[in-house]
Design a protein around this nucleic acid. Structure first.
Lengths: 232, 232
DNA sequence: TTTAATATGATAGTATTACTTTTATGTTTT
DNA sequence: AAAACATAAAAGTAATACTATCATATTAAA
């Protein structure tokens, strides 16, 4: 049995649907790799065109600018993660196990799912290095109105729902969800690049990161909120 | 009594010390305001030069490029916060109160300290919008070796020390410190720009953000780490 | 199967960015 | 009064971020 999942993307994000042609797929696939290679600031459509033996003008027919290409891949990934989470939570009733699964999906990049379009591992790296640059611009509001952050908000919202299910009294499910999502990438970045900001040392231990995130999540919501000054 | 605090900056960050001339101070002061106005991506030395009636070439004598100017201001702010925290913790012995004070300093921008150099409020906004862009580049490692992230790491390290003091058994003081620092800005950004990612709604309630951060911090370290499956 | 529509390539052009260089002029320091 | 230094003025360059035009190859419709 051969099943492929297709993610329906917001049409406002592209000029021509890149999934519908070989060139489009190549732009996304190699664009992802090139951004990861040289960083988003140094990435240009010219360089990408040279690498895929095409032209700048051709790439501009698919995406208005490089920021839209970034948004496209990042959004694809958030939608992909939401699907993975939905899939992984099938038939599970215990919300504690649900939450653990969510953290695993978030923090451990899916290995080996490299197809000819978007590879999970490459996309994870992109989110880690460039993810926040999608919204840290003066266009946040207009981009938000154009629903360009919907996949991220959907993922965070679904996560928050499970938090509410686990602990209906907890006051900040949405903020906690976005915190865990951001930290699953940022602490990984720190671990590899500014390790003194973490406790995962030089071993680069992904298990420790997982434990940190679980502790953060469960301690936050397990603790009875009325108990105060337990200590001292 | 008139006291002014002077922050000693890493000399590698600038070509000529901006604190030592009127032009230098103007570059930093107006540069900060202009970046906040139009965003770091659209900010250029040309535009800044026009605004302060100087020339591009003159600005380049102070800073190698706009990224260094950004680092300069952000680093100034982290050092400033570290001083504010040190100052605010004087004579306090209870680590719980210490931690509460730290969160307040982090999450509530200092009002009214606008001098002719760097204003606390403007700097807070800059950190919120552009802070992570200092390290999310392919130069992280070399910049880190040049000690360009020392002020941030010092602040986070000092925070972590207080966490250890409060709870010596907690396993992730450094990651928790960097998480709270990042979230004190990011959740504020979300609250104002992507509110559905938070629980602070349209009221833009800074008090709620404070409560979230305190809950996150104290629940994480108060909870006895051996207690498991309290629920279900 | 011819026509028409569409996608891509090739080429060129523009305003802006991110700098560097040189020369002139004004201000301090010695 | 001379020397040292900071800034301004002006010009120049390679790269970036696009837009526009035209030719050609491929595919779809008549």
């Amino acid at each position: 049995m051969e099943v492929q999942l297709r993610i329906r993307m917001n049409e406002k994000i592209y000029l021509r649907n890149p999934e519908e042609s070989a060139l489009g797929k190549s732009i996304v696939h190699n664009g992802l790799k090139l951004i990861n290679d040289i960083g988003f600031e140094d990435f240009t459509f010219k360089k990408l065109a040279t690498q895929i033996n095409s032209t700048e003008a051709s790439i501009y027919r698919y995406f208005e600018n490089k920021h839209r290409l970034l948004l496209y891949i990042i959004n694809w990934y958030w939608s992909y993660l939401e699907f993975m989470i939905m899939f992984n939570l099938q038939n599970i009733t215990d919300p504690k196990i649900k939450l653990k699964r969510i953290i695993e999906v978030l923090a451990i990049p899916v290995k080996g799912s490299s197809n000819d379009f978007i590879s999970g591992e490459e996309a994870y790296k992109l989110v880690m290095w460039e993810g926040s640059k999608t919204y840290l611009t003066r266009n946040v509001s207009s981009d938000n109105q154009a629903k360009l952050f919907k996949p991220y908000k959907d993922l965070s919202g679904r996560f928050a729902e499970v938090i509410k299910e686990y602990s209906p009294r907890y006051k900040f499910p949405n903020s906690l969800a976005s915190t865990i999502i951001e930290m699953s990438h940022m602490q990984n970045f720190f671990m590899n690049n500014l390790p003194s900001l973490t406790d995962f040392g030089k071993e680069k231990d992904e298990k420790m990161l997982l434990e940190f995130l679980e502790t953060l999540l469960f301690n936050s919501i397990d603790t009875s909120l009325t108990v105060k000054n337990k200590r001292k």
